[in-house]
């Protein structure tokens, strides 16, 4: 699948798949993808086809289910160039800690789970 020239269908092979970071830590599910802009209205012949610029996560899931769309500034993006591999899960080439998508995970970790005794140790 990673080999150049391969074809894939976005809904079937990309959307709703698990995203793992470079250390195989789960990051999110692909809730939607963002494409490079195309001319609004008529498309002049010879216009280059759009490419996938970002994976999207978070609030966009709600709008995908129930319609409408969040403002562009509110989208949680993972850049396509941070995607290393496409399979039954997507692998990134960076660590999830760097991504905005994981702020709720960090918040729950720092405010709640990390404060309960034993939360930072391996199970016995």
């Amino acid at each position: 699948m990673t080999s150049a020239g391969k074809m894939f269908d976005a809904v079937m092979h990309l959307l709703d798949r698990q995203v793992l970071d470079v250390d195989k830590m789960p990051v999110t599910v692909v809730d939607d993808v963002e494409l490079s802009d195309i001319p609004s209205g008529r498309i002049p012949p010879g216009t280059p086809a759009p490419v996938i610029t970002n994976l999207l996560a978070g609030s966009v899931l709600g709008t995908r289910m129930f319609g409408g769309r969040p403002p562009s500034s509110r989208l949680n993006r993972i850049r396509w160039r941070h995607v290393a591999e496409l399979g039954t899960a997507l692998r990134l080439n960076i660590r999830g800690d760097q991504l905005d998508v994981l702020w709720t995970e960090r918040w729950v970790r720092n405010r709640i789970i990390g404060r309960i005794p034993g939360g930072r140790h391996d199970p016995e």
Binding site: T2, S3, A4, G5, K6, M7, F8, D9, A10, V11, M12, L35, A49, P50, V51, I52, W80, R81, H82, V83, A84, E85, L86, N93
Partner: peptide, 26 residues
């Protein structure tokens, strides 16, 4: 019902996947 893409663009970085170009719509 879906968008078909081809992984045939130049990767943006060394460890990245090729760019995914929209081939057409299903």
């Amino acid at each position: 019902i879906d968008g078909r893409f081809a992984l045939d663009g130049r990767p943006e970085a060394e460890a990245s996947l090729a760019q995914a170009r929209l081939v057409g719509l299903l």
